[in-house]
């Protein structure tokens, strides 16, 4: 019973703070709500028996990306207290886009109910923990096995992105002693 409570708590936390991050006016509060949402998704990963993924979610997203976003929010301090008011066209476009996204997701749900859940009822969910594949060792075996090429590509992508990011920021640095 307590597991069900935790599961629905994680679901509500992820969904509500996700909606809040998209709609709340203050951008700093939106970034903090994004952190709550990431935490809820990490909890859902635990329920999916993806232990390693949950750790990565907390370390990379909460520890890395969220800190970067918060830093950027605080860096441009003039927008901290400023309220973000979308224009009328943006509001209409946003509601249309969100409606389209929801419709696509609902369609996905219907398709899943038709196909996936029937199989799920026949055999039940696969318990990944029984075979140890949700752990770091299981994922590591796969990454250096059949997923070796994507693993290398991801490494190259990260390197290129980080070097490019540093180069972009350096390029626009003002010369020392130059006029602002």
């Amino acid at each position: 019973m307590i597991e069900h409570g935790l599961f629905w708590g994680c679901c509500l936390l992820a969904a509500l703070s996700g909606v809040g991050a998209a709609t709340v006016r203050n951008l700093f509060h939106a970034a903090l709500l994004l952190g709550l949402c990431l935490l809820g998704v990490a909890g859902l990963y635990l329920f999916l028996q993806a232990w390693y993924l949950a750790c990565i979610q907390v370390v990379v997203y909460l520890g890395g990306i969220l800190v970067l976003v918060l830093f950027a929010t605080l860096f441009s301090s003039d927008i901290l207290g400023q309220r973000q008011v979308p224009s009328r066209a943006q509001q209409v476009g946003g509601v249309l886009a969100a409606g389209l996204g929801t419709a696509a997701g609902l369609h996905l749900l219907v398709v899943t109910l038709d196909h996936g859940l029937r199989l799920e009822q026949q055999r039940g969910p696969v318990h990944l923990a029984d075979t140890g594949v949700g752990t770091a060792g299981g994922i590591g075996d796969l990454l250096v096995g059949s997923w070796f090429a994507p693993f290398l590509v991801a490494g190259v992508l990260l390197t290129v992105a980080l070097v490019g990011a540093v180069a972009t920021v350096k390029r626009y640095r003002r010369p020392a002693g130059g006029s602002p």
Binding site: A14, G18, Q84, G94, A97, G101, T102, G105, L108
Partner: peptide, 20 residues
């Protein structure tokens, strides 16, 4: 999937309406 759908719709909403 319901949670993922809500997150997806929220993300689209944020991309379409945020100015910064």
């Amino acid at each position: 999937l319901v949670v993922a759908t809500v997150l997806f719709a929220s993300g689209l909403l944020a991309i379409a309406t945020r100015r910064t």
